[in-house]
């Protein structure tokens, strides 16, 4: 491992440790804010593994949140275990497995499509799955499903889910960072830049996209399970929400598509802005999100991190460093 990689791991571990400690001192309200940020960031990272690395924009990634949430709810209703460890492991495991299976089944047909066609096809997949969750009585999507309270009695639920979702987002970032440094990551970056040229250099483009899609879907499904466990009660409308797909994309765009920090920064900024500062104007939430997206596209096409980098270069005078970081 290089010195730089070791440094990143150490800084990351320190950040996670600090956030975990914050979980012991924050008020319930702030714990809920943290929890929202983590869930949002985890989903955005999941989306970014395909959307950011390969620039294959999925407009239907909420399908994995939904499938993960339903898989967790249905398994926990069928098998009632005692003890939070077993309950969480069952729910989360089922969610990840179901998302991985769904991703595997749709990957080959859907990843033969490029660009806008893939984007639209994912939108259709999400709509079809949402309809299925509502229409087939076995899923009980229109009536709703109750999830057991998995938090141990000794820990406040918001604190428990704060830590759980911090753990999940840490896992998501670790997986994404490993992919970015691995051979697969370089394959995905090559696809992002020029898919035909990548193929001619020997990059097995379909296999790369399928693997990224599997990782992306599984991580998003994991976040879906935690989302559902935290809500305690889900319906089709609450977990197969177009707004969730939109949030994953918006968080990545707002933060910046240049590195893994983009979706993280975006999730922090957008959650604070739309859920906390504008908490009293919930009915305008989507309108405000839309305005922010428009503003970002015009004023900061490379996201907040891109803007910060430009400012930093100006301060440092000209092209400081200048290396292109594909991550």
């Amino acid at each position: 491992m290089s010195a730089r990689a070791l440094m990143s791991v150490a800084l990351g571990a320190a950040a996670v440790g600090g956030l975990a400690w914050l979980g012991t001192v924050l008020s319930p309200f702030h714990l809920r804010v943290g929890l929202s940020i983590f869930l949002s960031a985890g989903m955005a990272i999941g989306w970014y593994i395909l959307g950011g690395f390969a620039r294959y924009y999925s407009f239907g990634h909420t399908v994995f949140v939904g499938v993960g949430a339903f898989a967790a709810a249905l398994t926990l209703q069928t098998w009632r275990f005692d003890g939070w460890v077993l309950q969480v492991a069952t729910g989360v495991g089922a969610a990840m497995a179901a998302s991985a299976v769904l991703a595997a089944v749709i990957a080959l047909p859907i990843l033969r499509l490029r660009g806008h066609y893939f984007t639209i096809a994912m939108l259709a997949v999400a709509l079809v799955c949402a309809e299925a969750a509502s229409a087939f009585p076995v899923f009980r999507g229109s009536i709703g499903l109750t999830l057991p309270d998995v938090a141990p009695p000794s820990v406040r639920p918001e604190r428990f889910f704060y830590w759980m979702s911090l753990g999940a987002v840490t896992l998501a970032v670790a997986v994404a960072a490993l992919i970015a440094r691995a051979r697969l990551g370089y394959g995905l970056f090559a696809i992002r830049e020029d898919e035909d040229a990548a193929q001619m250099l020997g990059v097995p483009t379909t296999r790369c996209k399928v693997l990224a899609f599997l990782a992306s879907g599984t991580i998003t499904g994991l976040m879906g399970a935690l989302y559902a466990l935290n809500l305690g009660y889900i319906t089709t409308d609450s977990v197969f929400r177009g707004a969730l797909s939109l949030d994953m994309i918006v968080n990545s765009l707002v933060g910046g598509m240049g590195s893994l920090f983009g979706p993280l920064v975006g999730a922090v900024v957008m959650t604070l802005l739309t859920k906390v500062m504008l908490g009293d104007f919930l009915e305008y939430h989507l309108a405000i999100t839309g305005l922010i997206v428009v503003a970002i596209v015009f004023l900061a096409p490379d996201g907040l991190l891109g803007l910060a980098e430009k400012a930093w270069r100006r301060v440092r005078g000209g092209n400081a460093g200048g290396g292109a970081d594909p991550r």
């Binding site: 970056f189 090559a190 992002r192 830049e193 020029d194 035909d196 040229a197 990548a198 290396g323 292109a324 970081d325 594909p326």
Partner: peptide
């Protein structure tokens, strides 16, 4: 030339 422009 078909470079991957965003990469070093």
């Amino acid at each position: 030339a078909r470079p991957f422009r965003g990469l070093s």
